[in-house]
Design a protein around this nucleic acid. Structure first.
Lengths: 110, 110
DNA sequence: TTTATTAATTGCAATATTACGATTAATATT
DNA sequence: AATATTAATCGTAATATTGCAATTAATAAA
């Protein structure tokens, strides 16, 4: 009924899905790539770089911050965003573990 | 307005987001893990294993099949699903490239 | 041919997401 | 104090997602 039944899955499954979900929008992929490229930047920079309205970018930044992949420092009237290295590494390990599962020996079904 | 502006992003960004989006639900994570664990299985097995209704599992299988991560073989009245090894490897490479981006030298913002 | 089994499809309700205009909040500058 | 700058928040419209009951489709078994 429109809401995910998280309670029937284990913590690992929910965590993998949560991280993947946040990465599952091209605007957030673009924001993360830009932060990797230029280390730090402001919301306004991302607005002009990406081409979505300021409230939209702000909303995507909020989601990235909420899950811990980025952090923001207030600098006067501006806010400086950057990758949260520790949490990025944590997320990366969780995703790598999932992606690196051993493929079955037999390539085809049944 | 409710729809992602894919046209303002490049192919790589859209592809990363598409793969991540499909993995961004715990039921699909669970389905993939189960297929890795037991190599092949039927829709009914996943229904009893995961605990969602049959139409719901069927819908998730459809999404996984649509993006190419799994394939299904018809076997009488049953369908045998398995990981699509080639496409899984392709997806993995795309995601690894994104996850392995070099972290900035300075850990903190600005 | 009738019945059983299995999975896809349809239709629907509830909720979530995406995007943006308008406004607000907070700080700088004049 | 008045004004400018920057980003967050609010409100809203459009669309997407999640989940399931009911049904349908397809094959197997009797």
């Amino acid at each position: 009924m429109g809401l995910t039944k998280t309670e029937i899955f284990n913590d690992q499954q929910n965590e993998i899905a949560s991280f993947a979900k946040v990465i599952g929008h091209p605007a957030r992929v673009a924001i993360l790539q830009q932060l990797f490229k230029i280390d730090t930047c402001h919301c306004g920079d991302l607005v002009s770089e990406i081409g979505l309205a300021q409230p939209t970018i702000s909303q995507h930044l909020k989601e990235l911050k909420q899950i811990g992949l980025i952090k923001g420092n207030v600098e006067g009237t501006s806010v400086c965003y950057c990758i949260d290295a520790v949490n990025w590494a944590k997320m990366k390990n969780i995703m790598l573990q999932f992606l690196n599962q051993d493929l079955p020996k037999i390539d085809d079904c049944c």
